[in-house]
Measured scan of single mutants.
Amino acid sequence: QKPVSAYALFFRDTQAAIKGQNPNATFGEVSKIVASMWDSLGEEQKQVYKRKTEAAKKEYLKALAAYR
């Protein structure tokens, strides 16, 4: 399975908490809140997710090379 983006990892980590705080929110509303949070996130915090994405990408490429 291809690795997901840094934003997708952040979304996955954040979505449940947002939904818990806003139980009646639609998926679209939750998405807007998470997107706003991502935009206001500091670069250092974004780097945490970007590093996770890079590590997953390297593992994916290694597994793909081994498969071929």
Rank of each mutant, 00 (worst) to 15 (best):
A17I: 12
A55S: 11
R12Y: 08
M37Q: 09
A25C: 04
Y67A: 15
F10D: 01
V4I: 14
R68G: 12
L41F: 03
A35F: 04
A35R: 14
E43V: 09
F10C: 00
Q45A: 08
S31E: 12
N24H: 13
G20I: 12
A35Y: 07
V30M: 08
K19Y: 08
A66R: 13
G28F: 10
R51S: 11
S36V: 07
F27L: 13
F11W: 08
Y60G: 09
G20K: 09
L61D: 15
A16S: 08
A16N: 13
E44T: 10
K58G: 10
L64M: 11
N22L: 06
L9Q: 13
K52T: 04
S40G: 12
Y7D: 02
R68M: 06
L9P: 00
K62G: 08
L64R: 14
F11N: 07
L9I: 15
Y60F: 13
A56D: 11
G28C: 11
S40K: 14
L64H: 15
P23W: 00
K62T: 11
T26K: 03
N22P: 01
F11Q: 08
T14D: 01
A56W: 03
K46H: 01
L61T: 14
L61R: 12
A17Q: 12
Y67E: 14
Q1F: 10
K58M: 10
E54K: 09
A8D: 13
L9D: 07
A17N: 07
Q47E: 11
K32H: 05
Q21H: 07
P3H: 10
V34T: 03
N22M: 03
A63S: 14
V4C: 10
N22K: 04
Q21M: 07
F11Y: 05
Q45I: 03
V34K: 00
F11A: 07
A16Q: 09
M37F: 04
A56G: 11
D39Q: 12
D13I: 03
K62Y: 04
N22H: 13
Y67P: 15
R12K: 12
G42D: 13
K2S: 13
T26G: 07
A6L: 04
L41D: 01
A63I: 04
D39N: 07
K62Q: 09
F10P: 02
E44F: 02
W38D: 01
A17T: 13
D13C: 05
R68W: 05
A65K: 13
E29L: 01
S36T: 13
Y60C: 03
E54Y: 06
A56E: 12
R51A: 11
